[in-house]
Design a binder for these strands. Structure first.
Length: 108
DNA sequence: CTAATGACGTAGA
DNA sequence: ATCTACGCCATTA
């Protein structure tokens, strides 16, 4: 039976400067279609966790909006930009090159 | 026990 | 490309 730890371990394997999506994490954890649980799991992370939760965005390549407009959204974007990622004018990332695992090589 | 909710995704219009 | 509707299911009310 899968647990939050499974999600956390996968997220921990995302390289710096790369991102993945909730749906992908769920699939890698063997629970396709349960993307919401991934977000739920990340939201339950303690503040001092070693899990790079900020490297998980939605399938559109944007930082998902929290319910109460939490400050973690801004934090997430700042952390990602700090890792070299660039958001376009729509607040989205280039998922073809930034997504992990690699979908397509040739982003150079 | 049932109903609503949500860091999501996909299909169809 | 954007928008809506629906499926998903653990957690909460």
């Amino acid at each position: 039976m899968a647990s939050y730890e499974d999600f956390y371990n996968i997220v921990r394997s995302i390289p710096e400067g790369r991102v993945s999506s909730y749906g992908v994490i769920a699939r890698l954890a063997g629970l396709p279609g349960q993307a919401r649980q991934v977000g739920y799991a990340l939201g339950a992370l303690p503040h001092a966790s070693d899990v790079p939760w900020h490297r998980v965005v939605n399938a559109r390549g944007e930082v998902s909006a929290r319910k109460g407009g939490s400050a973690s959204e801004k934090i997430q974007r700042l952390l990602l930009e700090h890792e070299g990622l660039v958001f376009d004018e729509h607040g989205r990332l280039d998922m073809v090159c930034a997504a992990w695992p690699d979908i397509q090589t040739r982003c150079d």
